[in-house]
Design a protein around this nucleic acid. Structure first.
Length: 274
DNA sequence: CAACCGACCTGTTCGC
DNA sequence: TGCGAACAGGTCGGTT
């Protein structure tokens, strides 16, 4: 579920809880939550580890440990963290629990069981195939223009490919294409340099604004942060999940189509086919 | 490569 | 009210 802005928000909140702490106890409640190493090795290597730093790469939360290893978490569709100072709780969807030296519990909750933890020597084992960070200096309009010219697929689907750019997901791709005025079914290579430039600016702007809002919490999907808070960006979405409503720019009706078995929302007037 | 499919999972909403 | 279908912020692996 979470995309870059939500993962960034979660990583910041977790950083304030975990940084400087020592993990004293690990409970794995759903073994497949641990992608690698084995659940037993994961527990053994994590107990006693201190947390030096918590950050983000793409949609991964990345935690540097005193043991030299790195703990990475991908929340996929329904993963979330819950922090508690009075006991481990009893959420039926809890998949992993970390007990910290000061008594705090950090509980990983994931109804759909898609999320995965990785404990590795080198984070590149997990994040090495990711494309550039869209909010870093690596991501430039020139780079995007040159890359798009060599890709034949639909622009919407390309932007969801984490090997191309890391961190965009279904919400922010729809929003960025709307912002740039580009139809989601356009072939990537058909974008003009001016359009590529607009798309670059739109991606950066949309992500910056969403991070500033603490991400998006769609009401019916109960997206909650480690401290129980909600993001605020849902109030500022222009097209995502708004099929049948008016385009805020031109007033025409927002449409929903399916690309790659996933919903895309766009304005057929503002986002032209060619 | 690309397009397309199912798989991984459970919960909620929608349509009849 | 009930029940199945559709849908959900993600990714991987397989086939054509």
């Amino acid at each position: 579920m979470p995309e870059l802005p939500e993962v960034e928000t979660i990583a910041r909140k977790l950083a304030s809880v975990l940084t400087g702490q020592t993990i004293v106890h690990v409970e794995v409640l759903w073994e497949r939550t641990i992608a690698r190493p084995t659940p037993d090795a994961f527990r053994t290597k994590l107990v006693g580890a201190g947390v030096l730093e918590v950050g983000r790469r793409g949609k991964y939360i990345q935690t540097t440990l005193s043991t030299g290893q790195t703990l990475l978490v991908h929340l996929r569709m329904s993963g979330k963290f819950v922090v508690s100072t009075d006991g481990p709780g009893d959420d039926r969807h809890a998949r992993l629990r970390l007990h910290l030296a000061d008594g705090t519990w950090v509980v990983y909750v994931d109804p759909r069981k898609f999320g995965r933890f990785y404990l590795v020597d080198d984070p590149c084992e997990v994040t090495g195939t990711l494309g550039p960070e869209p909010l870093s200096a690596d991501f430039t309009a020139e780079w995007l223009t040159a890359q798009l010219a060599r890709r034949r697929g639909e622009i919407k689907r390309l932007l969801l490919d984490q090997r191309f750019i890391a961190g965009l997901g279904n919400i922010y791709v729809s929003e960025a294409l709307w912002q740039a005025g580009i139809h989601p079914q356009r072939a990537a290579e058909s974008l003009t340099p001016a359009e590529a430039q607009r798309l670059h600016a739109a991606i950066v702007t949309v992500l910056h604004e969403a991070v500033a809002d603490g991400g998006t919490s769609l009401a019916d999907r109960q997206y909650v942060y480690p401290d129980g808070g909600l993001g605020q960006h849902q109030a500022h979405l222009h097209v995502y999940d708004r099929a049948g409503e008016r385009c805020p720019r031109c007033g025409y009706t927002v449409e929903r189509i399916v690309q790659g078995q996933r919903s895309t929302y766009f304005c057929p007037v503002c986002q032209t086919e060619r």
